[in-house]
């Protein structure tokens, strides 16, 4: 089964200034992101102290008779200050139903395992304070991916797209052990690729992208960002960069992006994904002009 058909409940149409392209700075969007989180706060944390939080969790298991039809289970979890969505589902699993299934590992927003669709938006469970959400908190698997069980989705397609951009440094002449010299890189250049290297492969962006939903071959924001990380790194030569741009400008590459900013909106690491995609479009145009 798939959640392909489900429409996000709170999908907003991107506002005009964003549609117009790349002018709006990352900072502005971050602030907006912040504001929207505050708006959603249902209550002060102190109001919840001693109370329970109501969560509704998507359930599905192809093998178990009463879970073959997808359903939502309700859990009431005792609230504790600082409780995250991940804390809540872990509590529900460890206390009420040990078959409740989801991926999680580091609990600190770096392993990228626990991206869920929470109240209609892609978020990392471990990084989302439950007190900031409207109750009941609806927790679903990431849309546009096959559901394996409960909140676990099949990540193979996402990994395939990540691998499709040749995501590795193409430094073919690494010197031998004895005389390894570091390559120089300017601080500016390191700064340029810094945000792109923060990706934790959580697949939130891919799940939020309408284009990726309709075109299975579209590389998607995460993979293009991965390519950006290499294409913009001065330590790789010009020839390699051209090769990378050729991969990116193919039919299902950068030109598919319609700058809706949904990926940038949901990225838990605040990577300016849409800006990176736009920049690669410009690079691709420049490269092609060069050969005219």
């Amino acid at each position: 089964m798939s959640t392909q058909q489900q429409k996000p409940e709170t999908q907003e149409s991107p506002d005009d200034s964003e549609m117009n392209g790349t002018e709006s700075p990352q900072q502005e969007r971050l602030e907006k992101k912040e504001r929207s989180m505050v708006d959603e706060r249902s209550a002060d944390e102190s109001d919840l102290e001693g109370d329970t939080v109501h969560i509704k969790v998507f359930r599905y298991d192809p093998e178990v008779a009463d879970k073959q039809e997808p359903r939502f289970d309700d859990f009431h979890v005792p609230f504790k200050k600082g409780m995250t969505v991940l804390d809540a589902v872990m509590y529900a699993r460890d206390t009420y139903d040990s078959s409740l299934t989801f991926r999680h590992s580091c609990r600190q927003a770096v392993c990228g395992s626990d991206a869920f669709f929470v109240n209609g938006k892609q978020r990392l469970g471990c990084k989302t304070q439950i007190s900031e959400l409207q109750q009941p908190v609806r927790i679903e698997p990431l849309p546009h991916q096959e559901v394996v069980k409960d909140l676990v989705v099949d990540m193979d397609h996402f990994y395939d797209q990540m691998h499709a951009v040749e995501p590795y440094f193409k430094d073919e002449d690494t010197p031998d052990a004895s005389d390894l010299e570091e390559q120089r890189q300017s601080r500016e250049n390191r700064e340029k690729v810094k945000m792109s290297t923060r990706c934790i492969w959580c697949a939130s962006c891919m799940s939020s992208c309408n284009i990726a939903a309709g075109d299975n071959e579209y590389l998607g924001p995460a993979a293009i960002n991965k390519a950006y990380r290499f294409a913009m790194d001065d330590r790789e030569g010009d020839e390699i960069k051209e090769h990378r741009l050729r991969i990116l400008e193919q039919e299902h590459g950068v030109w598919r992006c319609q700058t809706q900013f949904s990926c940038t909106e949901v990225c838990p690491k605040d990577i300016p994904l849409t800006e990176h995609i736009q920049e690669l479009k410009r690079e691709a145009v420049k490269k092609n002009l060069k050969f005219w």
Binding site: Y168, F169, D171, P175, E182, R187, V193
Partner: peptide, 14 residues
């Protein structure tokens, strides 16, 4: 570093 690790850098690029 040769495999592309994005180490923090000094002014001289080291």
């Amino acid at each position: 570093e040769h495999w592309g690790m994005p180490f923090s850098r000094e002014e001289d690029g080291r």
